[in-house]
Every structure is written in C-alpha cells, then in structure tokens.
Simulated scan of single mutants.
Amino acid sequence: MEPLKNRSDSRSKLLSASPSEVFAAMSDPARVARWWGPAGFTNSIHQFDFCPGGKWLLTMHGPDGKDYPNESRFTRIEADNVFEIEHLSGHHFILTIELQPKASGTEVKWRQTFDTIEHYQRIAEFVASANEQNLERLAAEVQREKNAA
C-alpha cells in the first residue's frame, strides 16, 4: 500500500478551547450540522449513531443548490481525543481528527486519507481548501458555544 502521507491531506489548527469543548462540537449532531463541510454548505443529519461501527447519514446542501447525500461509519471514537470516520459514499476515505491538549488550548489534527495517491491527487486542491474551511467552521462553532455560556 502507498504511504499515508502521499495520499492524505493533513492540517492542524490551534483552538483556544479545551479538548472536551472541541469534542462536544464533534459529538452533538445539531452542532455538527452547523460546522460540517466547506463554507457555504448546510447540512441535514438523518442518522448519527455516535459509537464505533455506528452509521452517519447526512445530506450536504451546497451553495450551488445541489444536494450531496453522504454515508459514513464511525470507526474510532475516544472522548476528548479522537473522532474517526470511514466515508462510504462517493469518494472513499478515512478522516481522523485528533485533539491534543496544549497550554493555550487544543491542537486539532485533521487527516483525510484516500485509498490511492492517484485518487487523492485528482481532488487534492479542492480537498485542501475544503478541509481548511471545515477547520475554520469548527473553530467558529466552538467559539460560538463558549460565547453563549
């Protein structure tokens, strides 16, 4: 199999929040619906069985007016530490989000891994931009909840 680093988009972002505050935004389907996906997308979550092996069904509504049905399976969940899914519909990938406590908050490490280098390279530019926007939206959701508290 080809090395992970050659078929993955990896990035990180430091959030001024605790791992539990970040994880709360990742484990609550109502909150996930607010931040999941690139800028301009909204979401309808139909099923969110938040446990290893659980199913996640959602429709992403694009700013272009198109609907994008998605099916994923939760593969690994460790409270306040790891959120991992296998995306089953359309582009097949594994998304691993790790939360690492830092003195100033939480470093969110995001890695989206495709099956082959060729598949990843075809969509790498879009994936990089979309993942950066996703992290920005996650940060905004975490901050929104902190401001509301």
Results as ranks from 00 to 15, higher is better:
Arg144Ser: 13
Lys13Asn: 00
Gly65Asn: 10
Val82Asp: 07
Lys102His: 11
His92Trp: 04
Ala139Ile: 09
Glu78Ala: 11
Phe93Leu: 07
Ala25Arg: 03
Asn6Asp: 15
Gly90Ser: 11
Ser20Arg: 13
Pro63Gly: 15
Leu88Gly: 06
Glu132Leu: 13
Ser27Tyr: 06
His91Ile: 08
Ala79Met: 10
Glu84Gln: 15
Lys66Leu: 13
Ser12Glu: 14
Arg137Ala: 04
Glu125Val: 11
Glu84Tyr: 10
Pro69Arg: 05
Asp80Arg: 05
Glu78Trp: 10
Tyr68Arg: 07
Asp80Met: 07
Asn147Thr: 14
Ala103Trp: 03
Gln112Lys: 12
His91Trp: 13
Lys66Gln: 15
His87Ile: 09
His119Glu: 15
Gly105Val: 06
Thr96Leu: 12
Gly40Ala: 05
Pro3Asp: 15
Thr59Lys: 05
Trp56Ser: 04
Trp36Glu: 01
Leu95Ser: 06
Ala33Lys: 03
His87Ser: 12
Ser72Ala: 15
Phe74Thr: 05
Thr113Gly: 03
Ile117Pro: 01
Ala30Asp: 15
His46Gly: 06
Ala124Met: 02
Lys109Thr: 09
Ser18Gly: 12
Glu71His: 11
Glu107Cys: 10
Glu78Asn: 08
Met26Pro: 04
Gln112Trp: 01
Pro69Phe: 06
Gln47Arg: 15
Glu118Ser: 14
Phe48Thr: 05
Ala128Thr: 11
His92Leu: 13
Tyr120Cys: 10
Val142Ile: 09
Gln121Phe: 04
Thr106His: 05
Gly37His: 07
Glu132Val: 04
Pro63Ala: 14
Val127Phe: 07
Gly65Phe: 07
Ala17Leu: 06
Ala17Gly: 04
Val108Gln: 04
Leu99Arg: 03
Phe114Cys: 05
Asn70Arg: 01
